[in-house]
Computed example of a mutant assay.
Amino acid sequence: MEFSHFNESKRAHMVNVGEKKDTKRVAVAKGNIKMKKETIDLIKEGLVKKGDVLSVAQIGGIMAAKKTFDLIPMCHNIFLTGADIKFNVLEDEIEIEAVVSTVGKTGVEMEALTAVAMAALTIYDMCKAVDKDMVIDNIRLIEKTGGKSDYKRK
């Protein structure tokens, strides 16, 4: 296996995707943030002083997907055709799922992963005053379609 982000001098470069065909591309990523049950209850009841935690985290995740190229050095600036964040609130954690799509020459895996990470960080930021023991965990790519090959986590 060879990494594509190195030039002939073994230095990093942005891969030229100009010759690739435009295809519909979708990536799904997930992660979670573990916290105290009392913190979950505050989120559910809308009692976190900074506001509606999940609404703000959803917006933060979507904004991060759109700005991934500013954060990850070798990512291309991609025109996203869609981005959504969903939350599953459990007893002591919140599961986060991002679905990001485009029609283009390169995939949106990094955008989906960044969206999950930023949504989790936003939740952390909004709740840190009441719960400093929160843990962001298990951010991973679940599925990607489009381009040369598809991928689905087993």
Rank of each mutant, 00 (worst) to 15 (best):
M1S: 14
M1E: 10
F3M: 15
S4G: 13
H5W: 11
F6Q: 08
F6C: 06
E8W: 01
E8L: 08
R11H: 14
A12N: 01
H13T: 12
V15I: 14
V15A: 09
V15G: 08
V17S: 03
V17A: 04
G18A: 05
E19G: 09
E19D: 12
K20A: 12
D22Q: 09
D22R: 13
T23N: 07
T23W: 01
R25M: 05
R25W: 02
A27F: 02
V28F: 02
V28Q: 03
V28I: 15
K30R: 14
K30Y: 09
I33D: 00
I33N: 01
K34I: 10
K34W: 13
K36G: 10
T39M: 05
T39V: 08
T39K: 03
I40G: 01
I40M: 05
E45K: 15
E45W: 00
E45T: 07
E45S: 13
V48I: 15
V48D: 03
D52T: 03
D52L: 10
V53G: 02
V53P: 02
L54N: 03
S55H: 04
A57H: 08
G60A: 15
G61L: 07
I62P: 02
M63V: 11
A65V: 09
K66W: 04
K67R: 15
T68S: 12
T68G: 04
T68L: 09
F69T: 04
I72R: 10
P73W: 13
P73I: 12
M74L: 15
M74A: 06
N77L: 13
F79L: 13
T81Q: 13
T81E: 14
G82C: 03
A83N: 12
D84P: 01
D84L: 05
D84C: 07
I85W: 07
I85S: 01
I85D: 01
K86R: 15
F87A: 06
N88D: 15
V89Q: 13
L90F: 12
D92G: 01
E93D: 12
I94L: 12
E95I: 12
E95R: 10
E97C: 13
V99H: 11
S101C: 13
T102F: 08
T102I: 09
V103Y: 14
G104L: 05
G104F: 08
K105W: 09
K105R: 15
G107S: 10
G107A: 09
V108P: 08
E111R: 04
A112K: 02
L113A: 03
T114L: 11
T114P: 02
A115V: 03
V116F: 10
V116K: 07
A117V: 05
L121F: 10
T122I: 14
T122H: 05
I123N: 00
D125G: 11
K128F: 11
A129D: 12
V130S: 01
K132Y: 06
K132R: 15
V135P: 00
I136V: 13
D137L: 12
N138C: 11
I139W: 01
L141M: 04
I142Q: 03
E143L: 04
E143F: 02
E143H: 05
T145A: 00
T145M: 00
G147A: 01
S149E: 06
D150A: 01
D150R: 00
D150T: 01
Y151K: 01
Y151A: 00
K152G: 00
